[in-house]
Design a protein around this nucleic acid. Sequence first.
DNA 1: GTCGAGGTAGACAGACCTGTCTACCTGAGG
DNA 2: CCTCAGGTAGACAGGTCTGTCTACCTCGAC
Lengths: 207, 207
Amino acid sequence: MPRPPSTPEVQRTSAARDRILEAAFALFYARGIRAVGVDLIIAESGVAKATFYKHFPAKDDLVVAYLDKVDGVWTGQLRAAAEAAGPDPAGQLVGLFDALGTACRREGYRGCAFINAAAESQPGTAVHDRTVAHKAAVMAWMSGLAEQAGAHDPGSLARSLALLLDGGLASGALDASPDAPEAAKDSARILVGSTVRPRGRRTALRS
Amino acid sequence: MPRPPSTPEVQRTSAARDRILEAAFALFYARGIRAVGVDLIIAESGVAKATFYKHFPAKDDLVVAYLDKVDGVWTGQLRAAAEAAGPDPAGQLVGLFDALGTACRREGYRGCAFINAAAESQPGTAVHDRTVAHKAAVMAWMSGLAEQAGAHDPGSLARSLALLLDGGLASGALDASPDAPEAAKDSARILVGSTVRPRGRRTALRS
DNA sequence: GTCGAGGTAGACAGACCTGTCTACCTGAGG
DNA sequence: CCTCAGGTAGACAGGTCTGTCTACCTCGAC
């Protein structure tokens, strides 16, 4: 092992790699994964083919990197929307649905990148697994919030809210009507209210 | 117009056509639309290539026929589940979620065929339009039920239940855990109950 | 100044995909 | 008997896709 510690086999980060990933991010989301060939990504990112295959030995590796990027972005937006709703966990569970409204309103919105990717992949593949992992992570986060909010059955509440969120993500891409996110938020409020018992101020339960 | 009335240009129904559609139904759903070539469908249905292209001049025509078939099947299951819940419209709105549970439990379940198809198609195409039309039809039906049930805002209730349904359809394909359909049904009960006012028997409102 | 990592440019192989076309078969109605 | 709709079998054209490979460039570290 004479390799110095700062020379990984393939650089994990570089300008070329970033450009590839950025082009893939836009193209995969807008047109679907199978519909976008590597040649198009190469042309769009202004990179040589050899460079592409040095960073991503197979197209699937790029797809996984794309999903990881989406995960980072979407998780961030969800957390930001929740925090913007204030310190109350129950309110955060409702407020996170503002991220859905913002996403649906965005030009070129085409649904949940993960669900779309899963629709194009087979169970057991790396791509499919990323989707499952992402959804599980989001639900775990909501479950924690539900517990802090003093929900009767935090896992069940989180599951229900996840259904609402996924449903909004999916149907927001179909009819452009903005009342889907709104309905999702209203429903979330009802669902949260039904297990958290709004009167009673359970927030400071533990102290 | 010398054409006798019983000789359409291309027969709308025939054994060969049915076999093609049946093979397409299974393959498109299991593997995705783009992932299945016409050659595979031809081989699987035991039909000649010329016959295939006589019935479906382009692959997209077959895709549309596939979606129409899915629409018939799924709509039927939804209505059957609703009717099995009894004559009460509010109960039917909850009971239709049993169709979701049944679907998710089925071997090889891979989510909503329409959402999956939309993920692989562009807005404005015939395939995408079918998806939008299907979702609108389901929601219109639920909206009618909600009105009969005396919901305060039937359209809004139908929208919320549609979110739950689509969310269940989407996530049922990801984690195989059977509690997604259950959570959807429980949430539906709460949502229906919150606008229909369970005590008060609003069912016979209009007579 | 030399060496090597990272990049560019593009030809190429081999697979697969849609859609067309020719040639032949079969069976029922007139 | 003969015709013709509907079907079979499969070659073929033209395009696209992934992934490999050769040849050359550039710039910073040693």
